[in-house]
Design a protein around this nucleic acid. Structure first.
Lengths: 192, 192
DNA sequence: GTTGAAAAGTGCAATCGCTACACTTTTGGA
DNA sequence: TCCAAAAGTGTAGCGATTGCACTTTTCAAC
């Protein structure tokens, strides 16, 4: 079902992109706190009002399109080929980290986020938004009630694990240890 | 070493208290977003400048003095009388919840925090600040290096556990399940 | 094709949290 | 007694965000 979007939608997406692009470029060049929304709007050749019609906050300008992340998490739990759920999630994170290692832009992006408190917080909040979706996927996978506590906890822990692992030198080993912590407790009282 | 603080310190603490009290009262009466810092300052009979000399942000007005929480966490890990660390933390949370159940003011306070995104976020950020201290205490307890990954992960998970448990009807059972998830994985590869 | 309503964009004024600045008052100790 | 540090004040201002009234563009029904 390819939704052949008309000129209107196309233009809308276009201005949205041009705003996000301008913001990302300026932020990377000079730092989040050193760039005002006015300047971003000017660079993208739109009004400040328009900018805020497209994005709910200054921080949101940098975190665009993370719907893929959520579905990727859910997929990781679903198609896991015999592995336990914690191990499947571990692999998912490790692979994602490897994927990012390719693009050198990502390194700079991460650096900016980590070093700017406002962005660090916003990013973390966006990330943990996936908790419910992930918990539901896990529950469905093991036939538990949708709001099972253990599933919710595992989802939350897995999402938090990313940050714990992130600032370690050897991330792969860190991932092993952190998810290893969840593995046994999860296996007990659980069929898969 | 009782620090006999002089008139100056006493007055400072006094204005600080009167600001915090005014803020708390107004927030509880009308909601966080419905009260401006100007009004709080006026109520406490100080200038806005003075208010911000005592508190770093509007949110901080409600979360005063949580240094006790950190030491309580560390103590829970230290004096645990044979229990495993996850179980000691579980008990600590359950007891804390029971203690709060006594004061009915606390119910209202919690309600305000949970229902106000800005406060929810701020509270969570303050809470997770304890991660490092807790992780160090755990590491010291089991003789692991100060920055051990498993210790850091257990600390983070335990702190996050509070929120997972909070909105469940039967918090005690929820605590059992959530910390049970950590128990086995922690016990493996660990002497205590 | 024309037209009319919805959607996209604009510019301005205002709110609100927060900070810098220059200033007065208070206070504790030498 | 006196002085430097600390506490407090008022104003002016910044920057993100919103509401409002407005113009322009676009789509679709007629």
């Amino acid at each position: 079902m390819v939704t052949e979007l008309g000129r209107r939608e196309r233009k809308k997406l276009q201005t949205r992109r041009s705003i996000a692009d301008a913001a990302t470029r300026l932020f990377l060049e000079r730092g989040f706190d050193e760039v005002g929304v006015k300047e971003i709007a000017d660079t993208a050749d739109v009004s400040v009002t328009t900018l805020f019609k497209h994005f709910p906050s200054k921080e949101a300008l940098l975190f665009d399109e993370d719907e893929e992340q959520e579905s990727a998490l859910v997929e990781a739990v679903r198609h896991r080929e015999g592995r336990s759920i914690p191990m499947a999630l571990r692999d998912h994170f490790v692979e994602a980290a490897r994927g990012h290692a390719d693009h050198p832009q990502f390194e700079v992006f991460q650096r900016l986020v980590v070093e700017t408190p406002a962005l660090r917080d916003y990013g973390h909040r966006m990330w943990t938004r996936h908790q419910d979706a992930l918990a539901r996927a896990i529950a469905e996978e093991v036939g538990a009630p949708e709001d099972d506590v253990r599933c919710a906890a595992l989802a939350r822990f897995a999402l938090e694990a990313r940050d714990v692992i992130f600032d370690r030198p050897d991330r792969e080993r860190a991932a092993d240890e952190v998810f290893g912590l969840l593995e046994l407790g999860w296996a007990a009282e659980q069929q898969s």
